[in-house]
């Protein structure tokens, strides 16, 4: 038996062979050889991406444990302590209504991440379905879907979002939906491209011969083939969505006070006096937005290199 094994086998594998039926072994081997395992290994070699990931994890923990970390309430108004400079009691000072800036910053992380992640997820989901259907069905279905995508891409997205928020009224769900509506075409085009490439592959023909329906081919071959790139686009979309949320909230069309978001915290910083003399009001949320978006983009770049090594070093 053992002489039949390829010579490159390590003792570790041979040992694993004995417990070949157990799940543990499956995990060990698949991590060694599967495309996913290889991508994870490549990602971990990218130090900047890993640093970005660690930073995001910290922000996430901050958001999740906001009530523990922030001693003050983010909405408690104290008119006797307006625009106070940072002190032992208020680590980052207070805002125009006497609310604790640190507490607001921490709670705002929840809103920003939530909006960013959900808007990106929705956009990617919509884009994947549209792109795959478009590529697989072709013909007039493809034409209609792709021209719709082109139309969405040719509008300035911020204008669409402002109009939507204006008509439907500003709220977090509307914010998520309107960001998703303007960003799905990017994913759709990408997935359509992958679908067109995979559609002509012999193994898809083989699947058709084996009796697979279009739905089956989408689930088992096309979406998995595009998954790497979908994850990358999804990550970059999170960064874009966080930015969009900040912009809209800054303009007063997104998250409404008294609920805090990084964008509407900046809203308070519109006057020159605040900018010049009260940096604790705008510097923390500004830095939070910049650092988070940068970290997300680092992770996205790392993922792209991990998923498709041929593209590394390009960007």
């Amino acid at each position: 038996m053992s002489d039949l094994r390829p010579s490159l086998d390590t003792p570790e594998v041979t040992a694993a062979e004995e417990v070949v039926a157990t799940e543990t072994d499956t995990a060990v081997r698949s991590r060694r050889r599967s495309p996913l395992g290889m991508a994870v290994r490549r990602f971990r070699r990218n130090k900047i991406a890993v640093a970005g990931g660690v930073f995001l994890l910290l922000i996430l923990l901050l958001a999740v444990f906001a009530p523990v970390i922030a001693q003050q309430s983010p909405t408690a108004v104290d008119l006797g302590a307006i625009r106070r400079a940072p002190s032992g009691e208020h680590w980052l000072g207070t805002d125009a209504s006497g609310r604790d800036v640190f507490a607001r910053l921490v709670y705002a992380a929840r809103v920003s991440l939530l909006v960013g992640v959900f808007a990106a997820l929705l956009a990617v989901l919509l884009g994947t379905i549209v792109g795959a259907v478009s590529g697989l069905f072709g013909g007039w279905v493809d034409t209609v879907l792709m021209r719709t995508a082109d139309m969405m891409l040719s509008f300035p997205s911020i204008v669409i979002i402002i109009v939507l928020a204006g008509i439907l009224g500003p709220s977090i769900p509307i914010l998520v939906v309107s960001i998703a509506i303007t960003t799905w075409p990017t994913t759709a085009r990408l997935v359509r491209g992958v679908t067109l490439a995979v559609r002509e592959r012999e193994y898809l023909h083989a699947a058709r011969v084996a009796g697979a329906s279009r739905g089956w081919m989408l689930r088992k071959h096309i979406v998995p083939a595009a998954m790497g790139q979908i994850v990358v686009v999804g990550t970059i979309s999170v960064a874009a969505a966080i930015l969009a949320e900040a912009v809209l909230s800054f303009l007063g069309l997104g998250v409404q006070p008294p609920q805090a978001s990084w964008g509407n915290m900046l809203n308070d910083a519109q006057s020159l006096t605040v900018i010049q003399s009260m940096p604790w009001l705008w510097l923390p949320p500004g830095l939070a937005i910049a650092a988070t978006v940068l970290a997300v983009n680092f992770v996205g770049d790392g993922l792209r290199d991990a998923v498709d090594p041929r593209q590394s070093g390009r960007s």
Binding site: P35, E202, Y203, A206, R208, V209, A210, G211, A212
Partner: peptide, 26 residues
């Protein structure tokens, strides 16, 4: 739908080039 149920179950096919007829990442 009935044709799909026959394909692969009652009529199966062996391809010329097994390299391209298998999905490389599965």
């Amino acid at each position: 739908k009935e044709l799909r149920a026959i394909r692969g179950a009652e009529i199966a096919m062996i391809f010329q080039d097994p390299m391209t007829a298998l999905n490389p990442v599965v």
